[in-house]
Write a protein that binds this DNA or RNA. Structure first.
Lengths: 250, 250
DNA sequence: TGCTTATGAACGATTATGATTGATTGTGGA
DNA sequence: TCCACAATCAATCATAATCGTTCATAAGCA
């Protein structure tokens, strides 16, 4: 059995059953445990699956490719609600920055007929924006393969060419003390720069990001207005002292 | 068994079974392993299949067909031949600029395992480059919806951040007197800037571009080495006085 | 005949594989 | 909670399969 065949087989089985066990694969393929282990390591490295103790599962926080986004985007309903509200803050003729990310991506359908200039650092976003016929500038820079986000010094200096009325940021966590955070320092730097070039900054997040802390700090809470779908009363009270919070209930 | 017969047989088998093993082919055709190896290498070069360890699989399982449909299939064989030769000019560790375009797009499969840094202004190219695991910078700028090329002042100034060993340009026409031309002045400006930042510049074109003149002039012939698939003797004589021409015959 | 092309065998180099090891993690009972 | 046991893990090594290259021979062609 060819290596590629095994890989395809594993992915097919995984797609059917959501999870696969290593022992199960050893038996059904006839390959050794070591080989299956290596297969899973390879496939995880190319983000096709996620390893767990004893087997593998479908990748959780997945890419934003249209093909998989439909079924794998978590909190899609909430993100759309957040995006719709965010779009209501935009004026005709505004210039806006759209951060790379799945939540900001949901903003795009609401931007039609607004006569905007949009700048983004997200590869998937620029394609969707163009389909909507919106004038779009991409920052460029070094591309992060997994997320399709552009980062690095090139991206930062490209941003300096622009000024924005509004800046919409995706974030991975917000916390009263630690502020807005995201896993990648490079992405954090881009978000900081974009925000500093904008008259107003909005942070978009679903409720799962509440009180989460990621590795890289973007900014303190008071530097951006937070838009969330729902939030506990205690948490909200804690946040209100720091910044403006807009809760978009269903 | 004739070479062509074997090739046809291999492709038929591959189409049926999705994958073929070398041992399997050795047995069923009676040819030696070396011969089958050569067959697979040939067929891979003409993009009919993709080699893997122990056999071969159908090509482009994960490439994007939709974005490159009509225009790119014209003279596809020729473009691949041109691209393969062009790739032979690249040294390990080079930094190269890849112009947006269908001919330069065909270069990408030949760039694997070359340890390169690639800069491009083509949206479709950056995606394909990333699938190959090549470190890729996108210039960014204003996106031209139809072609997926980035142009404008942002693109130009982004280019100034880099220096290239080699620059590969796609063109729409070449002419002894009028030089290299392309329809869009904005794209011409990008090509000019990229070339001026490169130690060497190559213009890639199929024979249909001979003696064609488009609206915007990129540069005179002597500023770049021309790579074409074929060309009439008279035309070649006229060109040779102006620049170096490399003809990539089948 | 002389020339080119296709072929097959042989070589060392590269890659995939399977078995083994000791470390790590999850499980269940005291 | 703690401990012991079983399952799983990553790392290593030796082996087997496959790879590209080279060279010599055979076949096709003028």
């Amino acid at each position: 059995m060819l290596t590629n065949e095994r890989h395809a087989y594993i992915l097919r089985l995984l797609d059917e059953k959501q999870t696969v066990k290593i022992q199960e694969l050893v038996e059904s393929t006839g390959a050794s445990e070591s080989t299956i282990r290596r297969d899973l390591t390879d496939l995880e490295h190319s983000r096709k699956l996620e390893r767990v103790f004893g087997g593998a599962i479908l990748p959780g926080q997945n890419l934003m490719e249209p093909s998989i986004s439909d079924k794998s985007t978590q909190f899609l309903e909430e993100k759309i609600r957040i995006a719709e509200f965010a779009s209501s803050l935009i004026q005709q003729g505004d210039s806006i920055f759209l951060d790379a990310g799945t939540t900001t991506f949901q903003l795009i359908p609401f931007l039609k007929d607004k006569d905007l200039v949009v700048v983004t650092n997200g590869l998937t976003l620029v394609e969707a924006l163009n389909e909507q016929g919106i004038t779009t500038y991409l920052t460029g820079g070094l591309m992060k393969p997994r997320t399709g986000a552009f980062v690095g010094s090139h991206t930062i200096s490209a941003l300096r060419n622009y000024r924005f009325d509004i800046c919409f940021l995706g974030i991975n966590g917000f916390h009263p003390e630690y502020g807005y955070t995201t896993p990648d320092p490079e992405e954090a730097a881009v978000k900081q720069m974009a925000s500093s070039l904008s008259r107003k900054t909005f942070a978009l997040a679903d409720h799962s990001k509440a009180n989460k802390i990621s590795f890289a700090k973007i900014m303190d809470l008071d530097r951006a207005t937070l838009i969330v779908d729902e939030i506990s009363k205690e948490a909200n009270a804690g946040l209100q002292k720091k910044t403006i919070v807009k809760v978009v209930a269903p």
